[in-house]
Structures are given as structure tokens and as C-alpha cells.
Amino acid sequence: MDYLWAFLVGGGICVIGQILLDVAKLTPAHVLSSFVVTGAVLDGFSLYDKLIKFAGAGATVPITSFGHSLLHGAMKQAEDHGFIGVAIGIFQLTSAGIASAILFGFLVAVFFKPKG
């Protein structure tokens, strides 16, 4: 069942993205930026965690989850450190994602050649 919901919710979020691309004619950068902001806002209302509980990877894999993680990490540290906690915690949960993307992106760039 987990897998079914992951498939349906993940696919559904992508469909919203596709509609924004085809109908609103937004660029991919615009669509993804708005998705990441949406993720942060939804987490601000404590809604994104509910979606994750329900859909698992269907909610953690789309880029919306990136926005959620940014805020989540920030709020966690804010509990302990006040205002400055927002700055301390913001990249905590997303660190693995950003660090991996930079590392693997770099390595692929070193060892591969673009094919066109």
C-alpha cells in the first residue's frame, strides 16, 4: 500500500508541475522554485509532515520536500536557540542532498564528456 500511495501522490505532484509547464508556460526553474516555496509554506502550517506520513516517498522525493526540510531544520534549531536557530538549522536536514548533488555533479563533470 505504501508503494501505491507513493506512486499516486508523487505522480500527482508531477502532474501539477506539468500543467504549470504546458498551460501556464512557466519555465522549469519557475515551476521548481514555486514548488520549493510551497513545500516550505505547507510545512509552516504543519501540513507537509502529514503528507509524508501518508505518502512516504511520494512526498519526500519531489522537490517540494526540499522546502519542507529547509523549514523543518530551521524550526528545530529555533526551539533551542531562538531566532538565530533559524539560520543554524536551515541546511541541517537538506545537507545530505545538497552535498551529494555537488559531489556527484562534480565527479561526473570530471570523468564524463557531454554528448549533446
Binding site: 514555486s34 520549493v36 516555496v37 522546502g67 523549514l71 530551521a74
Partner: peptide
């Protein structure tokens, strides 16, 4: 994506706090 994620998380974080 990184810029807008970070800026929005900051703003939402401060407001929520």
C-alpha cells in the same frame, strides 16, 4: 531553487517562531 527555498524557509521560520 536553493535561493527561493532558503529565503522562503527563513521568512516562514521567522514568522512561525
Amino acid at each position: 531553487v536553493i535561493v527561493y527555498g532558503t529565503v522562503s524557509a527563513y521568512l516562514v521560520g521567522i514568522i512561525r517562531y
